[in-house]
Amino acid sequence: MEAYNRPGAREAIFAQLVDAGRTEQVTARLTDAIILGVLAPDERLPSESDLARRFGVALITVREGLSVLRDAGLVETRRGRGGGSFVMKADAPHSTLVQARLHGLAQVDLSDMAVYFATVVEGCAQRAALRASEPDSDRLDLWLRGADFASVAGARTNAGGFYLELAVLSQSARLVRELIRLQAEFGPLLLLGMTDARTRRSLLESNHAIADAVRTNDDAAARQFATEQVRILAEWLLNAKARIERGGAWDA
């Protein structure tokens, strides 16, 4: 289904989990998505049974995970018609939690994740440029023109959405699945830089450059712009980590 606003990037939050420590994984996946802004305040999460099916875990595991999130003040459960688990409004952005999350991750792992993420995105961009038809390029341009990169929330959603557009244009089901999985694992962190207006502008410029390269079937250029884009995001993230470790704030 050719789109406009492909949902997969965000839906990846709920993609299947691996075996070990499943409650912790449920908690980590949803916590990242909430504190890093991929799930918005007041947004309703899928139902418990739907989450269980999509994560591939038992219902009790989802309930345990949600209970941890409730205790942390990240979600609330509303009863009755139209009820369910909702993302809590934060008074301040979840700065303390972001700080703790970044502190808890080793620099070496952040760098490694960025390398892997870049490799997949580069491959998507290159293949998209090789394989996009003219109508595909038209749709990509239309998508990009309609996508909000000015607001923080819009940029977070649409940055991931653009990667998914490229993956779909690669015509590779495996690349799409792997990108969705990677975005679930690493997307919210990597896109932390979207809080910064200058980074949002540079990302949008880069996306236009990639879309132009896709239109002209210039696979080398598409790849190069993707490399640079992920490098900028990774550098922003590593800078934020360094600021925290020096005792400052991640978004200073």
Partner: peptide, 25 residues
């Protein structure tokens, strides 16, 4: 990878906001 496993046909749930954005157009 997105929707988990099921042994029988299941309804596509469009309730989450992302799908709503997609189907709007």
């Amino acid at each position: 990878s997105l929707l988990g496993s099921s042994s029988t046909a299941t309804r596509l749930d469009l309730a989450t906001r992302a799908y709503t954005d997609y189907v709007r157009d």
